[in-house]
């Protein structure tokens, strides 16, 4: 029995709802449950089987489902996604893993030209139920090829969906939705969230793609964020609460399609908006979100929309420089102050 949930459970009444999992375990559980439920689901990618995934997300699945359904591949990103597309249009529901979002550069033809467009080009006569799990973001001082946030690339491709969960609860529910979706979903995890913990029910539940979630209600300013930056926003909001500033945090969760309705609704209440994103600022996700606010919520604004985003640089190795290249609690607080009266 699947239930559809839009809100993270706050008050829990049963033991089961009290269960705490890491973000990584929550994703693993979603894969496990969906593979048990649906025989057409299989996992393939580099190091997903014996190794259990570079970040250990698929650990244990090989023992349970075997080599046929948990497939180690060669280091062939384009073929991994390409074969995923071919399998998807002929009746399977592949979940492929691209180890780092940085390596999505190697699959862009498959993603942009094939997965995203086949349905449209064929006049609606096919569907591509493919999930591409990948992982991005800075924080481990891995340098410019293992630390990027490239979500805005994918937001620019009509025909796919882009999902970026911040909490274990959302990670599980959104992955189940992604696998069951009849479209290609780019599901981007954050390497710094894998060990983060949260309540995750054991039940089969889905979270609708395209629905943002107000993670913290407030009345003074709307902070729009997603993925790991959401955690920084929560820390910033805590600190500002001590000064009597009431921050509303909207977790976008899905970047394509974007839940403009929830964004507008929040800004209507607060009249101020700050977008917090880890990707580089120029042409980033916030550029689109900000412009949608201008088009849909301009009349409600009492201050210009502010972006707190990554610097326009390749991600540097040095921990000092890396931390400076992305938003922090401090820069978020500063950004929020800029839009306050």
């Amino acid at each position: 029995m699947t239930t559809e949930q839009t809100k993270t459970p706050v008050n829990t009444s049963t033991d089961q709802d009290q269960r705490v999992l890491t973000y990584s375990q929550a994703i693993n559980e979603a894969l496990d449950q969906e593979m048990a439920r649906d025989e057409s689901v299989f996992v393939m990618g580099e190091d997903v089987a014996i190794y259990g995934g570079a970040y250990g997300v698929t650990r244990g699945l090989l023992d349970k489902y075997g080599e046929e359904r948990i497939r180690d591949t060669g280091i062939s990103e384009a073929a991994i996604v390409g074969a995923g597309i071919g399998a998807a249009i002929t009746g399977m529901r592949p979940v492929v893993e691209i180890m780092y979002v940085d390596f999505m550069s190697l699959v862009m033809d498959q993603l942009c030209n094939q997965a995203a467009k086949l349905r449209y080009m064929f006049g609606g006569k096919t569907k591509v139920p493919l999930t591409i799990r990948t992982e991005g973001g800075a924080g481990r001082t891995l340098g410019a090829h293992h630390s990027q946030s490239l979500e805005s690339w994918f937001m620019h491709i009509p025909g796919i969906k882009v999902v970026m969960p911040a909490t274990p609860y959302d990670a599980k529910g959104l992955l189940l939705s992604s696998i069951r979706d009849d479209n290609t979903v780019v599901y981007i995890e954050h390497k710094m969230l894998y060990n983060s913990k949260g309540l995750v029910p054991e039940d089969d539940y889905t979270i609708p793609i395209g629905k943002a979630d107000v993670k913290r209600p407030g009345k003074d300013v709307t902070v729009l964020s997603y993925s790991r930056q959401l955690l920084f926003c929560q820390e910033a909001a805590e600190e500002l609460a001590g000064e009597g500033i009431d921050v509303e945090i909207v977790d976008l969760r899905t970047l394509l399609p974007l839940d403009v309705e929830t964004i507008v609704e929040s800004i209507r209440k607060t009249s101020r908006a700050v977008i917090v994103e880890e990707d580089t600022i120029t042409g980033g996700a916030g550029a689109e979100i900000g412009m949608r606010i201008m088009e849909e919520a301009f009349d409600y604004l009492d201050a210009p929309v502010k972006r707190v985003a990554g610097a326009d640089v390749p991600m540097p190795k040095s921990p000092v420089l890396e931390a400076l290249a992305i938003p922090s609690k401090e820069s978020i607080i500063e950004g929020i102050r800029e839009v306050l009266p």
Partner: peptide, 11 residues
């Protein structure tokens, strides 16, 4: 190529 190979995998 990818599509055909994936169709083969599916089969």
């Amino acid at each position: 190529l990818g599509i055909a190979t994936g169709a083969g995998l599916s089969i």
